Computed example of a mutant assay.
Amino acid sequence: MSVSGLCEFCMQNEVVDGCDRCGRLVCERHYDKKTGFCTDCLKEMGQSPEENDTQHRKPDDVDTYRF
């Protein structure tokens, strides 16, 4: 999707995509690539971006896992 402008949530970051549910133009921080929904729509559906990506999430500031 080729869009330009500011995120409709934070009004600071550049738009990366639009929500497939509500159509709002949002930045990377407010967009969940896995579902295609904005963070607001995920909250309304009782989900969060973290819940959708628990399988692939790493702890903050960690590049690799060591066992």
Rank of each mutant, 00 (worst) to 15 (best):
M1G: 15
S4C: 06
V3T: 09
S48I: 04
E8Y: 01
E14H: 09
G23A: 07
E8A: 13
C38K: 00
C19N: 04
C7D: 04
V15E: 01
R66A: 13
Y31W: 01
Y65S: 10
D63G: 15
R66V: 14
T35R: 08
V3I: 12
T39C: 11
L42Y: 02
T54D: 13
Y65L: 10
D32H: 06
Q12P: 01
V26A: 01
G36E: 06
D53P: 04
C22R: 04
C10A: 08
S48N: 12
G18P: 02
Y31L: 01
T35M: 05
E8F: 01
D40Y: 08
D17F: 05
V16P: 02
R57D: 13
M11F: 09
L42E: 08
Y65T: 04
D53C: 14
C41N: 07
F37H: 10
G18V: 05
L42T: 02
Y31H: 03
K43P: 02
S48V: 01
T54G: 12
H56Y: 12
F9R: 03
G36T: 08
F37E: 12
L25S: 00
N13L: 12
R24G: 06
E51F: 12
H56S: 13
G18Q: 07
Q12I: 13
R21C: 14
R57M: 14
N13D: 13
M11Y: 07
R57Y: 04
M1N: 10
M45I: 12
C27R: 03
T39I: 09
E44W: 08
